[in-house]
Design a protein around this nucleic acid. Structure first.
Lengths: 388, 388
DNA sequence: TACGTTTGTGGGAACGTTTGCGATAGATAA
DNA sequence: TTATCTATCGCAAACGTTCCCACAAACGTA
C-alpha cells in the first residue's frame, strides 16, 4: 500500500499501483479514476535538448488568419494566391524570420537533399580535394554532403553505407577501400533506387555512373616520359592486384613499353597495399637484382615519396642512379628534393564530375543510363626524373 | 469549351475549366461535382525520386495485429510488453529488415543526432585530422557529422552556420576563419540554445566551451629550443594580429625570451595572412636587415615550408645560416630537407576533445558551465634547427 | 438574368515515430 | 466472493510541411 498522494484529488488512501511505465511506478486513483506517475525532480536525465521554437507556417497562418495551405502557397509563389495575401504573408514571414523546417520538409517529401560520400580517408590530399569538388557542386545545387571515412576497412565501409542510408541520403558517391572485393552492400542500395556514383576506385561488378582519372593515359605518359629520358628498366609499384586502378595504370605502362619496343619484365612489377613497409620491401628486392631498375614509377605519390626517402637513406642519388615518378600531384611533390615528377590527376575536378553525374541521374531518373567519365590530367615533369 | 472527359463520370459535356493548380489546368465536372486535373504521362519531369518504401513500424503492427505503440515499445524493450509479443515483433522486424526512419524520429524528437562542423578547409592536414578526431568520438556516440568548409572566408562561414542550423544540427563545432572578427552569427545560435564548441581559432567575445592547442607552451618550447641551440635573433612569422592563436603563440615566444634574458625585437615579428606571398615578403625584409635573424619560427608548418623553400632558392643553408621551425607537425615536415623541427599539436586529439565537450554540454544541459581544455603537445626536434 | 468561368482560399490527409494516458482482462489477495 | 493489483496493450496527439480536393465568391458573357 503506497503512501502516495493522487496528483488530482490529493487523496492518498485511494491510490494504488498500476504497473510500470518506462521503468517508473505508475499509480491509479480510485477516487478520481486517474492514472499518473511521479515526476520527481531527478527528471534531469532528460538530455533531449528541446530547442527554442522556430517560427512555423502555422504561426504565420494564425497571425494573419488564413490557413496553412495559403501560407505555404504564398511562400512558394503559387499563382493561386492573391497579390495582397501573398504580400502580407511574405512580409510577416520576413519579420518573424521564418525558416522552413527542412526536417519536416524532408520527412514529408521523403528526400533530404543530402548526398552521402564515402572515402577511404581524409588525410590524403587526394581524397580531400575530391571531396572539395563534390561539396562545391553539391552546395551550388542546394545539396548538403554527409561524409564518412572507411579508413580503408571494408567492414567500416559497409557500416558507413548503412549509416548513410538510414539517414535517407538522396544519393551515394563512393570510392571503395583497397580491401573491398564484394559489392553486395552497394547492389542492395541500388535496388532500393538510390543513385550510386563511383569515383577513383571503381567497382566493375555493378553498372553505375562513374568518373575516373585518366589512369591509362597518365601511366602511359609517365612511362613514355621515363623512356624518353633514357631509362631502361622501369619498375612499378602498384596497389593491390584486384584494384581496378592498379590494372588500368598497369595497362598504360605496358602500352608505353609496347610502343617503344621495350620488354615487359614481370619481376619489375610489385603489387603492394600502399603501406610504407610493403613498398620498401619491394624496393629492397629490386636493389638486389643483377639488373637493377633505373627508374621506379609508383602509382601513388605517397608511395613515391616513401621510395625517395628510402633511396636517399641508402645514398642512392635521384635521378642519377634511380629516377622516381609518382601519380596524383600531391602538394608534397614540390617539397621533397628533388621535386617529384607526377601526373596531376585533377582530383578536384573528378569530385565535381562525380557530383554532376549524381544530378544527371537525379534528373533523368528511371530512363537513366550509367555513364563513365574520364577526367584528363597532365604530366608534370620535375627533378626526380630529369638528369642533370 | 474543353473536350475533356471527367475522370469520375467520364462525361465530357459537363466539364469546365476551373483555374490552375501548380501551372496545370484544373477542371470541374458539373455532373458529378468533381474537381480534377489531367495527369498526363509527361509527368516525368517529376524528379522527386520517391524511393521504394521501407518497412515501417506500422507495417509490422498490421502484420502482427497490434498497435504501433506496442511495436515501438517492443523494439525498445519497454517492460510493459509481454515476452511473446516482444519476440514475435522483433522476429518479424528482423525478417522484414526494419530500419527505423531516422527522419521521422528526428522530426518527432526535434533532434537530429548530427553535429555540424565548420572548418576553414580540408586541404591542410591540420584540420583534416581534427575532423577525424571529431568524427571518431561522434560516431562512437551514434552521432553523425555534417561538415562545411568556410574556405577562410567570413562570409562563407556565416552562410555555413545558416545552412547547418536550418538542418537542425544538435550542436556546432567551429574553427573560425582567419578573417572572422565579428561573432554575431555565433551568438545568435547560442541564444537559440544550441551548444557551440570552439577549437583552435577561438572567439574570446563569447563564452563557449573550447579546446586549444597548447599554443603558449608549444611556442615557448620551440623558442627555448632555438635559444638553447645558440640562435640569437629569432624571427617570428605569425598569422593575422587579431587572431587569438597568433597572440597566444607570441606570448609563449616572449616568455621564453624573457626567461633567457633575450631582447624582444619588434622588427622580428611579422603578422601575415599565412599566404605564401606575405610570408616571403616578410622573410625578404628580414634578409635586408643589418642584424639579420639567424632563426625563423613560423606559427604554421605550411608557412615554415614556404620559408625553407624560399631560403633554399636563395642558397641560404638551413640550419647553418638560418634555422627554421614550425608548428603543427605536418606530415610534410619529414619530407622536406632538412626535416622541419615542429611542435606536434596533437590535432587529432583536439578534435576528440572538442566532440567530448559537446557531449558534456549535452548532458549537463542548462546547468552547464563552459570549459576550456588545453591539449598538450610535444616538441619534435629535427634537422632544420640542429646544426652539424 | 442566367449561366459559364476563374480566382482565392480552407480542409485535411499523409509522412513515421514516440509517449502520456486510458483501458481491460486476468491474477492475486482479503 | 469481492476487492485490489498488475501486466499488457490501444488511442491519439504532436512534430511542420505539402498537396489534392472542395467550394464560394467574383467575374464574364450571352
Amino acid at each position: 500500500m503506497p503512501r502516495v498522494k493522487c496528483s488530482k484529488c490529493s487523496k492518498s488512501e485511494t491510490v494504488l499501483r498500476s504497473g510500470f511505465i518506462r521503468g517508473k511506478q505508475r499509480y491509479f486513483c480510485k477516487a478520481c479514476h486517474y492514472n499518473f506517475t511521479l515526476h520527481h525532480e531527478n527528471r534531469k536525465s532528460n538530455n533531449e535538448v528541446k530547442r527554442k521554437r522556430q517560427t512555423t507556417i502555422i504561426d504565420i497562418a494564425k497571425a494573419i488568419g488564413v490557413s496553412n495551405s495559403t501560407v505555404s502557397r504564398a511562400l512558394h509563389d503559387h499563382p493561386d494566391i492573391s497579390f495582397n495575401t501573398r504580400n502580407a504573408i511574405k512580409e510577416l514571414a520576413k519579420k518573424l524570420d521564418y525558416q522552413p523546417n527542412l526536417l519536416a520538409l524532408s520527412f514529408a517529401n521523403r528526400q533530404t537533399h543530402t548526398i552521402g560520400v564515402i572515402i577511404p580517408n581524409l588525410d590524403s590530399s587526394f581524397f580531400a580535394s575530391a571531396l572539395s569538388g563534390i561539396q562545391h557542386v553539391a552546395t551550388q545545387s542546394g545539396y548538403k554532403v554527409m561524409i564518412c571515412q572507411s579508413n580503408e576497412s571494408h567492414k567500416t565501409e559497409v557500416a558507413n553505407v548503412q549509416t548513410l542510408m538510414s539517414n535517407w541520403i538522396d544519393g551515394l558517391i563512393i570510392c571503395h577501400t583497397k580491401e573491398t572485393e564484394t559489392f553486395d552492400h552497394i547492389k542492395l542500395q541500388m535496388q532500393k533506387g538510390i543513385p550510386v556514383i563511383h569515383f577513383g576506385r571503381v567497382c566493375e561488378e555493378v553498372e553505375t555512373s562513374r568518373v575516373l582519372h585518366d589512369d591509362i593515359d597518365g601511366s602511359f605518359q609517365i612511362t613514355e616520359h621515363l623512356i624518353k629520358q633514357g631509362y631502361q628498366r622501369i619498375a612499378v609499384i602498384g596497389g593491390p592486384e584486384k584494384l581496378s586502378i592498379s590494372r588500368r595504370r598497369l595497362t598504360g605502362y605496358t602500352e608505353a613499353l609496347k610502343k617503344y619496343n621495350r620488354p615487359y619484365q614481370e619481376q619489375l612489377i610489385a603489387y603492394t597495399d600502399f603501406t610504407k613497409e610493403s613498398i620498401i620491401s619491394s624496393v629492397d628486392k629490386w636493389l638486389t637484382l643483377k639488373q637493377k631498375p633505373d627508374a621506379i614509377y609508383s602509382m601513388s605519390d605517397r608511395g613515391a615519396i616513401y621510395v625517395m626517402m628510402h633511396l636517399k637513406g641508402k645514398k642512392i642519388r635521384i635521378p642519377a642512379q634511380m629516377a622516381v615518378a609518382g601519380f596524383g600531384n600531391d602538394p608534397m611533390d614540390e617539397v621533397i628534393e628533388p621535386n617529384l615528377t607526377s601526373y596531376n590527376a585533377q582530383t578536384y575536378k573528378v569530385g565535381e564530375v562525380a557530383a554532376q553525374l549524381f544530378f544527371d541521374q537525379l534528373i533523368e531518373n528511371e530512363n537513366f543510363i550509367p555513364k563513365t567519365r574520364v577526367v584528363k590530367g597532365e604530366l608534370i615533369i620535375r627533378g626526380s626524373t630529369v638528369k642533370g
